[in-house]
Every structure is written in structure tokens, then in C-alpha cells.
Amino acid sequence: MVQRQRSKEIRMLKKTLALVMFAVLSVSAFAAQAKTVEIEGMNSLKFSKENITVKPGEEVTIKLTNTTDLPESAMAHNWILLAADADAQAVDEAAAQAKDNDYVPKDMSDQILAHTGLVAGGETDEVTFTAPEEPGDYEYICTFPGHLAAGMKGTLTVKEG
């Protein structure tokens, strides 16, 4: 009788441990997923989100959607995250010569941390990247001609907690 009770207790303990392990693994998998930020590129030449906060080294997905009804030649958008010391104006000027590369200048790749492709009205593109380890503010811009000059930019802030 005592042995049977002991066997039952051991089985219960094993089931409990299995459930605890499942819970721990589930939480770990959830925590490892990328933070997704949905941003709209608007006719007002603004991003719908001009401030994003992430943790150092966090995996981030930016999902850019263009909400315009205008033709692509008039109102397309991209999202480009710049290095901390990048010159946004210089990147934008170089981008004007990079139409065939979605206005992303290949020769300035050392100043660009991540970018989407160019999206026309109703289109969406996304990019997943690892946030910089160095806390601070990182500018993001749209390099479709004239958009940065009109104020289409924002700040990705990297900070603990």
C-alpha cells in the first residue's frame, strides 16, 4: 500500500516537473520573438510613429505600410535606420542617385543599420534587425526624393529597461 502511494506521488511529481519545464520553455520562446513595430508612411510626409524605444541587442521588426492612394512615382516610402554618427542629409543626397536600389545608397552602407524596400500605396515591406548594443538615439528617415526635407524622419531610442 505504501509503495503504491509512493509510486503515485512520483508520477505526480514527474507530471508537475514536465508542466513546469513546458512553461519555462514557452516563456523563453515568447521572449526570443522579435518586437514588431508597425509604421505607416503617410501623405503628410510623416511616419505614423516618430519615436520607437527598444532595448540594446533586442531583435526588432519594422513593418512599413504606405497608406496613400497616389501613384508610386509621387508617393512611395522607405524606412532607413542610420548609424549613430551618420549624416542624414548626406545619406539623403546620395539616395537621390539610387533610384534603382529603392533610394538606398549602396556606397553609404556603413552609415545604414537597416532598411526596408520602397513601398507604393497599399504595399507593405518589413525588415528585422538587431538593435544596436550602444544606448542612444538613432535617426530613421525616408529617402524618397523630398521626403526627408519635408520632415519624414524619427528616432529609435536604445535604452535599458
Rank of each mutant, 00 (worst) to 15 (best):
Q3R: 12
R6M: 01
K8F: 11
E9S: 08
T16S: 11
L17Q: 04
L19D: 04
M21K: 01
F22C: 08
V24M: 12
F30D: 04
A32W: 02
K35T: 08
K35F: 12
K35S: 13
I39Y: 06
I39A: 03
I39G: 05
I39K: 06
S44P: 04
S44I: 09
L45N: 13
K49E: 10
I52Y: 10
T53W: 11
V54L: 12
V54N: 06
I62Y: 06
K63T: 02
L64T: 10
L64P: 01
T65A: 04
T65Q: 13
T65C: 01
N66H: 08
T67R: 08
D69C: 01
E72T: 00
A74S: 11
H77N: 11
H77Y: 14
N78M: 13
W79G: 08
W79E: 08
D87P: 08
D87S: 14
A88W: 02
A90P: 02
A90T: 03
D92G: 02
K99N: 01
Y103E: 07
V104Q: 01
M108K: 15
S109M: 14
L113I: 14
A114C: 07
V119E: 03
A120M: 03
G121V: 07
F129G: 10
A131Q: 14
A131E: 09
P132Y: 03
P135A: 03
G136P: 13
G136S: 11
I141E: 02
F144C: 01
A149V: 03
M152Y: 00
G154V: 04
T155C: 02
L156K: 12
T157P: 13
T157K: 15
V158H: 10
G161S: 01
